[in-house]
């Protein structure tokens, strides 16, 4: 074990050196949010919680509280995750197993959309949303986000379904179970790792989405954390750079937590199969 480990050291050292600047920046960012620093110096000279005051009061006098923003972001990310996963779960099963008309076309379209720079559709999407009266609403942004995420989700789930042996379903059918029961009781448990991974993935993707809310919901009401962060920088009234750093950390914490907790589950998405 030991000699084996040692042979990795040069690589580890090189990687550490390369990523050191980023790590140091992050550490500084964290320190900056709880300290005061004299202008021109890089050594902090005092401790303060002033930059974290946004937790208890709105940053700008008439602006939203951070919790309202976080709530919006949470709703946005959760809805995206749930809808993407739900639709992928059923659509991918149909594409993987059912001999339905237009299946080939659908699969082809999926691959194209998967690789397509969907953001180039933003103008068309904007027009459609406006026509539907969903422009500048959170619902509208969620719908668009879901649509953009679906090709990836369906494709991933189809991979998981494809790896479930055909015989298991046939055994279930001869055991007397309906196709739906077979799916629910026999197939679903076996794609469960994919389900969990997709749920987390699309949640994270929703949490960090910036462009769509920025373009499709620019008004104050449905703002999410990402667009709000951008707004703070742009806003001359709030010139406090440490505040910006503190909000960023607040914004990044859930992502970090999820990665730490669900690391194993997320890796599944690259495995693409169930083990015995």
């Amino acid at each position: 074990m030991q000699p084996h480990h040692r042979s990795y050291w040069p690589i580890v050292a090189a990687l550490t050196a390369l990523s050191a600047p980023l790590v140091i920046m992050y550490v500084y960012q964290l320190i900056d949010t709880v300290t005061t620093t004299a202008p021109g110096s890089i050594i902090p000279n005092g401790i303060t919680l002033q930059h974290w005051q946004f937790l208890s009061q709105p940053i700008t006098r008439d602006g939203p509280t951070i919790w309202a923003l976080a709530g919006n972001t949470l709703i946005f990310a959760c809805s995206t995750a749930v809808v993407v996963t739900g639709v992928s779960l059923t659509a991918a099963y149909a594409l993987s197993r059912l001999a339905m008309p237009g299946r080939g076309l659908f699969l082809g379209g999926l691959i194209v959309l998967h690789a397509f720079p969907t953001l180039t559709l933003i103008v068309a999407v904007f027009l459609i949303l406006q026509y539907m009266g969903l422009y500048d609403t959170l619902t509208g942004v969620i719908l668009v986000k879901v649509a953009f995420e679906l090709p990836f989700g369906i494709w991933i789930m189809k991979g998981f379904y494809d790896s479930v042996p055909w015989e298991i379903e046939m055994a279930g059918v001869t055991d007397g179970a309906s196709r739906f029961t077979v799916w629910r009781l026999l197939v679903l448990p076996q794609v469960q790792p994919g389900l969990a991974a997709l749920l987390i993935f699309s949640f994270l993707s929703g949490w960090s989405e910036f462009i769509l809310p920025l373009v499709l919901a620019p008004a104050n009401a449905p703002q999410v954390l990402a667009t709000y962060l951008a707004a703070i920088i742009a806003d001359d009234r709030v010139a406090d750079f440490s505040l910006f750093k503190a909000v960023s950390i607040f914004y990044a914490l859930p992502v970090l937590a999820i990665y730490v907790i669900f690391q194993k589950k997320l890796m599944n998405i690259y495995g693409g199969g169930s083990k015995g």
Partner: peptide, 27 residues
């Protein structure tokens, strides 16, 4: 197939991996 009442054993056994042996047999 559901209404035919046949028992079938597949070459790869097709056991349900997430169920215990008792649950498999009882399915």
């Amino acid at each position: 197939a559901q209404a035919r009442n046949v028992g079938i054993v597949f070459q790869n056994y097709a056991l349900y991996p997430h169920m215990s042996v008792a649950q498999n047999i009882g399915f």
